[in-house]
């Protein structure tokens, strides 16, 4: 019998320890499928960020570097400049990439570093217990916005794809979601595209994946998927924000 659904080689044979309904697991799998698809497992270096994805080194079967909070784009720059033959992906949460690491992501993007960034936007800080992130929606209650985020004191949800698309240095920027099978399929295609851009030496690619954090959102997994559909998509529309991969040489 031919198996139709197997664990990708790029994932170790261990169960994820994310909370039930957390999208990190799905996004890990899509990254692993892309690595398998291009047959690059033996020359890929991944980043384990500070955040719920820090245990990436327990799950991926490629070499992994754990990097300080927000600094993965700088570390990836060091890796890729020293060893351009290696394929490098960063994997970062929204606290990591859009708050403490804003300078690092903007400048890596602006330099057009030939790396692939997977940006997981779950609208809060998961690991530390659900505080406000730069991506938290207006009115969204978190541990540090008990009455809901207010624009007047906390500012507005930071739109990373929209911002990075304005930089001349970037090549491929897309926002995806994995809250239903259709979106997940699209997300898989986008992540493969982002790796392809790097494989063709075409520069900086970033895929933002809207993701659930049912634990800190205090929702069931099904409710969390609905919340993404009804609330997050309005503020963070899906789609390709930039694609100059055809014109870049």
């Amino acid at each position: 019998m031919r198996p139709v659904f197997v664990r990708p080689n790029a994932l170790k044979n261990v169960p994820f320890r994310f909370c039930p309904g957390c999208h990190h697991g799905i996004i890990h799998r899509l990254v692993a499928e892309a690595i398998d698809h291009f047959g690059i497992l033996d020359r890929t270096i991944g980043i384990a960020p500070v955040g719920c994805a820090v245990f990436a080194y327990d799950y991926f079967s490629c070499d992994i570097l754990e990097v300080a909070h927000g600094r993965p784009p700088a570390a990836c720059t060091g890796i890729k400049r020293a060893r351009p033959d290696l394929i490098v992906f960063s994997y970062q949460g929204d606290g990591d990439l859009a708050s403490i690491g804003t300078a690092e992501i903007i400048h890596a993007a602006n330099r057009g570093e030939n790396i692939t960034v997977i940006f997981v936007n779950n609208a809060n800080y998961g690991m530390t217990g659900g505080q406000m992130a730069p991506t938290t929606l207006l009115g969204q209650k978190t541990k540090t916005t008990p009455k809901g985020r207010s624009a007047s004191s906390d500012g507005y949800p930071l739109k990373v794809c929209e911002m990075l698309a304005t930089l001349e240095g970037t090549t491929y920027i897309e926002r995806v979601a994995v809250n239903n099978p259709g979106h997940t399929k699209e997300a898989g295609r986008a992540i493969k595209k982002a790796f392809k851009v790097q494989l063709e030496n075409k520069g900086f690619s970033l895929i933002e994946a809207l993701a659930s954090c049912p634990t800190n959102w205090e929702m069931s997994p099904a409710q969390a998927n609905m919340w993404i559909e009804e609330k997050m998509l309005k503020v963070f529309p899906l789609g390709i924000y930039k694609d100059t991969s055809e014109t870049k040489i």
């Binding site: 300080a68 700088a74 290696l86 300078a103």
Partner: peptide
Amino acid sequence: GIFLQAESELAAINMVFGAAAVGARA
């Protein structure tokens, strides 16, 4: 060799971190 002016000292030391991790003298 590689020369890069980083956006900050934070970035510079983390670039060193990445380069050292792949075995380069940085």
